[in-house]
């Protein structure tokens, strides 16, 4: 107690933060209890009736839930397999640019889209890919198509477009962390490899790439937790009633159930299911990665 009193100032500095976490992090975590209730606003958390797993069984019986779940998982898989490794590849390319000033230029300009809100990015691409937009005009001009492509009303095109826009927005920013890791590689390794007659490609494949793999694995494990979530931005801002069968994701479903239909308990059950799955997935991936390669998070 003596030390506690003597460091009153320090304790007062941490106190607001702990209160903040209690209110804005832990109360909502505890608030997930309404997933098991028939919550209504007047009764509140404490007096609403418990209904066990009824919300969850309703969820598993709803075809919309499965459609949203399927879309979420497919989009997440596409993200993991294409959008997620893209920055690694981009970093390898930037690192090989032979002119220093041009390298800096490419690198810094590639971050720019990260600073534009997804709301603006989505609007921009909706315009450019409009039947009368720039892309279709060019395609028509080059006689690559006979009629404008209906990019936003064709359900089959939503997933590829979501991937492309995801890369456009995030590839440069995502590459920073890999470029930092590349700058930490011991230059002697490259010199030694050169002496032994290894060419550029050999050096990339045998030195640069292996040095990035541990970092990539860690980021990948963290990312696996998002398999059953994410892509809300794309779904809300690029989705519409025409491409709903491929664009509607689980978070949008939860959002509509909760805020538009004010079915708070049901919507919370949906998001609770998601977060449980996310934690489970990270634990499994972490265990698996530890077994397979020794790269573990915790």
């Amino acid at each position: 107690m003596q030390t506690f009193k003597s460091q009153m100032a320090l304790q007062l500095m941490i106190l607001p933060c702990m209160l903040f976490l209690l209110i804005f992090a832990y109360v909502p975590i505890a608030g997930n209890v309404i997933a098991f209730q028939e919550f209504n606003l007047s009764a509140g958390f404490f007096h609403s009736r418990f209904i066990g797993l009824a919300n969850f069984s309703e969820m598993f019986a709803d075809p919309s839930f499965y459609m949203a779940m399927k879309n979420t998982v497919i989009l997440s898989l596409l993200n993991m397999l294409i959008v997620f490794p893209a920055p690694l590849l981009f970093a390898l390319i930037i690192n090989e640019i032979p002119f220093l000033r041009f390298k800096k230029l490419v690198q810094t300009s590639s971050y720019l889209p990260n600073f534009i809100s997804f709301a603006m990015v989505a609007s921009m691409w909706i315009f450019l890919l409009d039947p009368k937009g720039m892309v279709n005009q060019s395609l028509l001009l080059l006689h690559l198509v006979k009629h404008p492509i209906e990019f936003w009303t064709e359900p089959g095109l939503f997933r590829p477009l979501s991937v492309v826009i995801g890369i456009w927005k995030g590839v440069g920013w995502g590459a920073i962390i890999y470029l930092a890791a590349i700058s930490g590689i011991n230059p002697d390794l490259y010199e030694a490899a050169k002496m032994d007659g290894a060419g550029r490609i050999k050096r990339i494949v045998h030195i640069t790439l292996p040095n990035l793999i541990p970092l990539f694995s860690i980021l990948f494990i963290l990312n696996i937790g998002t398999l059953f979530s994410g892509n809300l931005d794309q779904s809300v801002l690029l989705g519409n009633s025409f491409n709903k069968e491929t664009s509607y994701v689980i978070e949008y479903y939860s959002l509509q159930m909760g805020l538009e239909l004010t079915r708070y308990s049901y919507a919370t059950a949906v998001s609770f299911f998601q977060s449980v799955m996310a934690v489970l997935l990270v634990l499994i991936a972490n265990w698996f990665s530890g077994k397979a390669s020794g790269n573990r998070l915790f």
Binding site: T3, F4, Q7, L10, Q11, I14, C17, M18, L21, I23, F24, A25, Y26, V27, P28, I29, A30, G31, N32, I34, E251, S254, L255, G258, L259, Y264, A267, T268, S271, F272, Q274, S275, V279, V282
Partner: peptide
């Protein structure tokens, strides 16, 4: 500061929030 009393407990309280969050509706109701 290493000498901060209950530092370990504070850190754990903070770190848990990296992995668990309340979700949209509980936040909204709060």
């Amino acid at each position: 500061k290493e000498r901060l009393r209950f530092r370990k407990a504070y850190s754990i309280i903070g770190l848990i929030t990296m992995y668990f969050s309340g979700g949209l509706i509980p936040n909204y109701l709060l």
